[in-house]
Amino acid sequence: MTEPRSDRADPLDMLPDAVAAAAFRRLVRHLRHRHDAQNIELMGLAGFCRNCLADWILDAGYDGDKGAARELIHGMPMDQWKATRQSEATAEQLERMQASVAKNAPDLR
């Protein structure tokens, strides 16, 4: 796989904000529906999870705090999510997550 060229504009930046926002909302709603896809599994496969999305909206200027951002993404308070949706992570899941996160570029903005 080749790295994207840094001297060229990223076509993603040309995507209209309304289109990007609609796609983001669809992704979040999909993740809410697929609560069987655990955050630890998302981290192990893709290096990000629902909590990352909450952090990213904070980084993008969301006015709420971390708890409000997570509630927005999860569709419920974090305590409720953990009690009803989150299972205990296995050692294998944690290992896979650490390896996956190590592959993340330092800054994908």
Rank of each mutant, 00 (worst) to 15 (best):
M14I: 02
R26A: 14
L15D: 08
D17K: 09
D13R: 07
M14W: 07
A102V: 02
A99S: 12
F48C: 13
L53A: 07
M43E: 15
D10N: 14
Q86W: 01
D55C: 08
S100D: 10
R85Q: 04
R34H: 15
F24E: 07
R109K: 09
W56R: 07
D59G: 04
D107G: 06
F48P: 00
S87A: 11
P11W: 06
N51E: 12
G64V: 05
C49F: 00
A89Y: 00
D10T: 12
L72V: 02
P106A: 08
A20T: 08
Q98M: 13
A18T: 02
N39G: 09
S6R: 04
K82R: 15
A46T: 04
L15E: 06
E95W: 02
D59A: 14
A9N: 07
E95M: 05
I73C: 01
D10P: 06
L42E: 01
S6M: 10
A46P: 00
S100H: 09
P11T: 15
L45P: 00
R50I: 01
F48Y: 12
L108W: 01
A105R: 15
Q38L: 14
D55K: 04
M97T: 02
A54Q: 01
E3N: 13
L108M: 04
A37D: 03
F24P: 06
I40K: 01
L42D: 00
T2E: 15
A21H: 07
H74K: 11
R25V: 15
T84F: 05
A18C: 04
E3S: 10
A105W: 10
C49Q: 01
L45F: 05
M78R: 07
L58V: 10
A60P: 03
G75T: 12
A20Y: 10
C52K: 12
R85F: 08
D13W: 03
D7L: 04
K103N: 11
M43W: 00
Q98S: 12
L108I: 02
D17V: 14
D107Y: 05
A60F: 03
W56N: 15
P106L: 09
H30Y: 04
A60S: 14
V19I: 09
E92V: 10
M78H: 09
G61Y: 13
D65Q: 05
A37W: 05
A60C: 05
M43K: 01
R32D: 00
I40S: 01
